[in-house]
Write a protein that binds this DNA or RNA. Sequence first.
DNA 1: GTCTATAGCGCGATAGAC
DNA 2: GTCTATCGCGCTATAGAC
Lengths: 192, 192
Amino acid sequence: MIKGDTKTAILDAAQELIQRRGANAMSYQDISEAIGIRKASIHHHFPTKDALLDALIQRYTAYFLGLVDSVVKSKKDPADQLLAYASLFEATLSEGKQDKACLCGMLGAELSSLGSPAAAGVKRFYRENEARLVRILEEGKVRGQFHFKGDAKLVAAMIFSLLEGGALVARAEGGHKRLHAMAEQTLKLLLK
Amino acid sequence: MIKGDTKTAILDAAQELIQRRGANAMSYQDISEAIGIRKASIHHHFPTKDALLDALIQRYTAYFLGLVDSVVKSKKDPADQLLAYASLFEATLSEGKQDKACLCGMLGAELSSLGSPAAAGVKRFYRENEARLVRILEEGKVRGQFHFKGDAKLVAAMIFSLLEGGALVARAEGGHKRLHAMAEQTLKLLLK
DNA sequence: GTCTATAGCGCGATAGAC
DNA sequence: GTCTATCGCGCTATAGAC
């Protein structure tokens, strides 16, 4: 709280705008209007848009993986862990003024127009998330609770894609409730 | 070939650009350079970008659903139909200069910056695809081949989101081969 | 139907005062 | 650290000649 508060406000505004509309539809002017600061001041904190995106992805990844780890730690049951993991995507969707998808899901669509540090950050987000899903799935299999055939890595990739894609598709119809129903349905396929 | 060839060339170029980079990163100038025509000429065929997007979505939807229907008709086995359906997404991903996702998957991320006819078109694409998946899934269940618990509509939504999301995520890592592996893994979950 | 030319705007980014 | 002012560019879109 001593310093850097403006930086945080900029990142918060940028994140919300991107989650709602995408990076290419978000401008310094939009951020400026959202938090009541001039464009030039934003450039002082983040010289270029690429730098802003990069910082945003780093912060989001750390924050989101932190949520994942704490939510996974708080449950013993892999099935509960999986639903809790999915609920992070659902919560984003229903947060605030709504229609917010995962930041890195949005950026995935815009990957080829991103700077290379930003693009690398998005890929890392995907990898880290899938790695955590693998752990949940393998634990569930060891316990004799999940009964899927095949590679846990592929099931993890499947579930991750389904949640990222589901967040985007559910914005068009059904919203967070529909995403939740999809997550529960997916769990049913794993349990038997 | 008698007429309207320019219109088709414009739509082809626009589609490729959007599938690769997104609608907000695609400009009349890009199309102009791709097909060797002036920007003003594009405006003659499609007065506004919204009109171009709308026409593009209509054409894509008709084309894609046509592929779906013919591919479904050509297979008897629901499991084969499902893999064939998924292969449409895989084929897009590996086509041409690569890294092309589903047009409406890309536009789903940019939904809130689309004009309302375009947005409605994207939603319709989602609905029509899920409806076709429901039919495949129900047929598979009736035949005693698919063994999923729960609502076929939810499983359809799940699979559709997984393919749309998977196309986006697989562009970051693994490409069409990874998407194919995910589709096969999904089928395994349904078969038993 | 395609062209040249240009209007009018919003963008990312920079210079320099305070 | 924030501001005013502005640059230069690319965008969508339009007017009008050919």
